[in-house]
Design a protein around this nucleic acid. Structure first.
Length: 721
DNA sequence: TTAGGGTTAG
C-alpha cells in the first residue's frame, strides 16, 4: 500500500465525501477515479448511500455515463437520489439519444416503484424539451401536477421550457408561467426567450417590463440576452436602444454575452451605426462579437465593410470561428467577390479548419454564386453523402450560372439517392424550369411539391406561379398566385412580369393597382414590369405618369431598365423623336447610351425612319458598341439610303473592332427531348424532312400573297458569314 | 449529508 492510500484509508467518510464533491465540481476525473478505486477496495462506499450516490454523480458530471451506469447498478438499495444522479447526468448531455435514455430510465424507475421527486422532474422536462416531444411533456406535466410538484420553481421552469421550445404551445407556457407561485430569473429568461423564438417582440418585452416592475432590477445578464434576441425589426429598434441603455446603467458592460446580443440586435434592425457603437463600447470582445458585426454588415448589403472588418479581426490577433468564416464567405457570395472568397478559403485551410458540412456548403455557395461553378462542383463532390443544403446550393448555383439542364440533372440524381428536397430546392428547380420554359418538367415538379406535402407559401408559391406564367400557362400561374396563403413583393412582381411578357398588359396594370391597394410597397422591379406592360400596350401617357410616380411618390431612382422601357415605349408607338430627346436627357452613362440607342435603332428600322436610324447608329459607333446587330443594321440603313461609302466604313469598323455575328439559335421541347437548331447546321437527324416542310410553308405563304421585305436585306455576306 | 431549470453569434 502506498503512502497516499494509507492516508486515504485513515480518512473519515465525511472527509472522503468532501473530496468527492470537490473532484465532481472541478471535474477532476483521474482523482475521482482513484478515490472510487479506494472506496471499492475498502468497501466503504457500499455501506453509505451518500457516498455511492456521489460516485454516480461524479461520473455523470464528468460525462462518463457508462461508468455512472455501472456505479448505479452496484448500489444494492437505490434511493431516489441514485436515480436522479443518473437521470440528470443523461439529461444534461442535451443529446437526442441521451434524452431517450432518460425517458427509459424514468419508465424503469416507475416499474421499480421508486417515487420520483421534483429533482427527477427537472431532468425529465429537460429531456422532453430536447426531444421536442410535447405529448410526453403533457403526460409528465399531469403526473407532476398529481404529485403536487408544480409549485417547485425548478419543476415549473423546466416545464415552462418544454412548452416554450415547442412553439405552438406558447399559450400553455404562459399559463404555466402565470400560475407559478414563485418565479426567478430562470423562469423570466425562459418565458422571454420562448416569445423571442416566435418573434413575438411585444410579448417578450412585456414580460421583461413586468419583471422590472416586480423586481425593480434586472437580475442577471441572461435576461438581457434573451430579451435583446427578440428584437430584430427596424420598428422596434427604439425599444432595443432603451434596453441597451438599461444594461449599461445596470452595470452589465462587463458581460460579453450582452454586448454580443446588443450588436446582433442592432444589426438585425438594420442600424449598423448603432451596432458599431455597441461593438466599440464592449469592454471585452470574442469571436462572436466580431461575427455578429461582420454578418450584420453582410446581411445589410455592405459586403465591403464585412470583408474589411474580417481582415481587421485578423490583425487584432482574434481567430475566427466557423461562424465567422461562414458569415464572411456569405458576404463574398453576395458581393460576387471571388478573389476575396478564395483568400478566405486559403486562410481557413491555413488555420486548419476541417471541411465540415457547413463550411463546405458556404464554400460551394460562394464559388457557385461568384460564377466559378467547376470549383463549386469540386467542393460538392468532396463529400460522399452531401446533405440537402449542399445539394440545394449546388442546384441553385447551376441555375444562377444559367446551366439549367445541369440543375435539373442534379435534382434527379438527388431524388435517386433518396435525399428529400426542401422548399428552397423546389424553388430553385422551378426557376430552372421557368428559364427553360419547360412546362412538362415544371408540371412534374408541381406534382413533387404536392406529393412531398409542401404548401404554396413563399418561395415555392412564387416560383410555381412564375414557372406557369413564363411557360405561357397564365391561367395556372394566376391560380397558384391566388391560392398562396401569403404573398410577398417578389410574388407580385413575378406574376406581373408573367402577365406583361405574355401580352396581358392590361391585367398586369390591374394587378399593379391591386398590389398598391393592398398596401404593398413597389420596388424597382415592379416598375420595370409595369413600364414594360405600358410599352407593349402602347400606353405612352400612362407610362410617362408611372415613370414620374416612381421617383416622386416612391423615391425610387430610375435605373437603366426603366430608361430602356421608356425608349422602347416611345419607339413602339412611333414617337421616335420623343425617344431621341428622352435618351439625350437621360443617357449620361456609356452603358445607358449603348442600350438605349440600340433600342431606338430597332424602332427606326420598324418605322423606316432611316435618317434618325443613322443618327442612333452613329451614336452606337461613337460609344464603341460590341453588338454585331448594331453594325449590320446601320450598314443596311446606309445601303437603303444609297450611302455606299458609309456602308463600307461601318463594315471596316466592325472588322477593326473584332465584332462578329453570333449565329442564330433556337430550340423546342418535344416529348421530353430538346431539338436545337443553329443557322446553317445540318446536324438534326430529320433535317431533310424539316427542310421539306419549311419549303412547303414558304410556298403556302407566297400563294397567300405574303411578300418578303427586302428593304433592309443587304449583300452583307462578307460581314455576316 | 448526495441529485434539478434558463441565455448570445451562422
Amino acid at each position: 500500500m502506498s503512502n497516499g492510500s494509507i492516508s486515504l484509508a485513515l480518512e473519515s467518510s465525511s472527509s472522503l465525501f468532501t473530496k468527492i464533491l470537490h473532484y465532481t465540481r472541478s471535474k477532476n476525473l483521474p482523482k475521482g477515479q482513484s478515490l472510487h478505486a479506494h472506496l471499492l477496495k475498502t468497501g466503504s462506499s457500499s455501506s453509505c448511500i451518500y457516498l455511492s450516490n456521489s460516485i454516480v454523480n461524479l461520473y455523470a458530471k464528468c460525462h462518463r455515463l457508462s461508468d455512472a451506469h455501472l456505479a448505479f447498478q452496484e448500489i444494492q438499495s437505490k434511493d431516489v437520489v441514485s436515480w436522479n444522479c443518473l437521470i440528470n447526468g443523461y439529461s444534461q448531455l442535451g443529446r437526442r439519444d441521451s434524452s431517450l435514455s432518460v425517458l427509459n430510465l424514468f419508465k424503469l424507475m416507475r416499474q421499480e416503484n421508486a417515487l420520483p421527486n421534483p429533482h427527477t422532474f427537472a431532468g425529465i422536462f429537460t429531456s422532453v424539451s430536447t426531444l421536442g416531444d410535447s405529448f410526453t411533456g403533457k403526460q409528465a406535466h399531469c403526473l407532476a401536477f398529481k404529485l403536487g410538484y408544480l409549485s417547485d420553481v425548478f419543476v415549473g421552469s423546466s416545464l415552462l421550457n418544454v412548452y416554450c421550445k415547442a412553439g405552438h404551445y406558447l399559450g400553455d407556457a404562459r399559463k404555466v408561467f402565470d400560475e407559478m407561485p414563485e418565479r426567478n430569473s430562470v423562469s423570466w429568461t425562459t418565458m422571454i426567450s420562448g416569445y423571442a423564438l416566435q418573434r413575438m417582440v411585444k410579448e417578450a418585452v412585456g414580460v421583461f417590463s413586468v419583471m422590472l416592475w416586480e423586481r425593480g432590477e434586472v437580475v442577471n445578464e441572461f435576461v438581457f440576452t434573451s430579451v435583446l434576441s427578440a428584437i430584430a425589426l427596424p420598428e422596434f429598434v427604439y425599444v432595443g436602444k432603451q434596453i441597451h441603455c438599461l444594461s449599461l446603467k445596470n452595470g452589465f458592460l462587463w458581460a460579453v454575452s450582452v454586448a454580443n446580443a446588443t450588436v446582433t440586435m442592432y444589426a438585425k434592425c438594420g442600424s449598423l451605426d448603432d451596432a458599431c457603437w455597441a461593438f466599440e463600447l464592449s469592454s471585452e470582445k470574442n469571436s462572436i462579437t466580431w461575427s455578429a458585426l461582420i454578418t450584420g454588415y453582410a446581411q445589410n448589403g455592405d459586403c465591403e465593410k464585412a470583408l474589411k472588418l474580417f481582415s481587421e479581426m485578423h490583425y487584432c490577433g482574434m481567430n475566427p470561428s466557423e461562424y465567422t468564416l461562414v458569415g464572411v464567405l456569405n458576404a463574398c457570395s453576395d458581393f460576387d467577390a471571388l478573389r476575396e472568397g478564395k483568400q478566405v478559403h486559403g486562410y481557413l485551410l491555413k488555420l486548419g479548419f476541417e471541411p465540415q458540412m457547413y463550411i463546405l456548403t458556404a464554400l460551394v455557395d460562394m464559388y457557385a454564386k461568384c460564377g466559378n461553378i467547376s470549383d463549386a462542383r469540386r467542393g460538392f463532390d468532396y463529400l460522399k453523402e452531401p446533405d440537402i443544403v449542399l445539394w440545394t446550393s449546388m442546384i441553385a448555383g447551376y441555375v444562377k450560372n444559367g446551366d439549367n439542364e445541369s440543375a435539373m440533372g442534379m435534382y434527379c440524381r438527388m431524388l435517386m439517392e433518396g435525399v428529400m428536397p426542401n422548399e428552397l430546392t423546389m424553388a430553385s428547380v422551378l426557376k430552372a424550369c421557368s428559364s427553360l420554359a419547360a412546362l412538362e418538367q415544371g408540371k412534374q415538379i408541381h406534382a413533387h411539391i404536392v406529393k412531398h406535402g409542401f404548401n404554396l407559401e413563399v418561395p415555392i408559391g412564387s416560383a410555381l406561379s412564375t414557372m406557369y406564367a413564363k411557360s405561357g400557362s397564365l391561367h395556372d400561374g394566376n391560380l397558384v398566385f391566388r391560392r398562396m396563403p401569403a404573398r410577398d413583393l417578389v410574388s407580385w412582381n413575378s406574376m406581373m412580369s408573367g402577365l406583361s411578357q405574355n401580352g396581358c398588359g392590361t391585367e398586369a396594370l390591374e394587378l399593379f393597382e391591386e398590389m398598391l391597394h393592398e398596401g404593398i410597397r413597389p420596388d424597382y422591379v415592379t416598375f420595370v414590369n409595369i413600364l414594360s406592360a405600358c410599352s407593349h400596350m402602347g400606353l405612352v401617357k400612362r407610362g410617362w405618369s408611372i415613370f414620374k410616380m416612381m421617383s416622386d411618390e416612391f423615391g425610387i431612382e430610375p435605373r437603366l431598365e426603366h430608361f430602356a422601357c421608356m425608349v422602347d415605349m416611345f419607339g413602339r408607338a412611333g414617337e421616335l423623336y420623343e425617344a431621341k430627346e428622352f435618351i439625350e436627357s437621360a443617357a449620361s452613362h456609356v452603358d445607358h447610351g449603348l442600350c438605349l440607342w440600340r433600342i431606338l435603332l430597332s424602332a427606326c428600322r420598324n418605322y423606316r425612319n432611316y435618317e434618325l436610324g443613322a443618327y442612333a447608329g452613329e451614336k452606337l459607333m461613337e460609344l464603341g458598341s460590341q453588338e454585331s446587330s448594331a453594325y449590320v443594321l446601320l450598314s443596311s440603313i446606309y445601303s437603303a439610303l444609297g450611302r455606299l461609302e458609309d456602308v463600307e466604313r461601318v463594315r471596316r469598323l466592325m472588322n477593326l473592332r473584332g465584332v462578329s455575328k453570333e449565329p442564330g439559335c433556337s430550340w423546342i421541347e418535344l416529348k421530353s427531348q430538346f431539338h436545337v437548331f443553329v443557322v446553317g447546321d445540318q446536324l438534326h437527324p430529320q433535317i431533310i424532312h424539316i427542310r421539306d416542310e419549311l419549303w412547303k410553308l414558304s410556298k403556302l405563304m407566297k400563294d397567300e400573297g405574303y411578300k418578303p421585305d427586302f428593304d433592309l436585306c443587304l449583300e452583307l455576306e462578307g460581314v455576316i458569314d
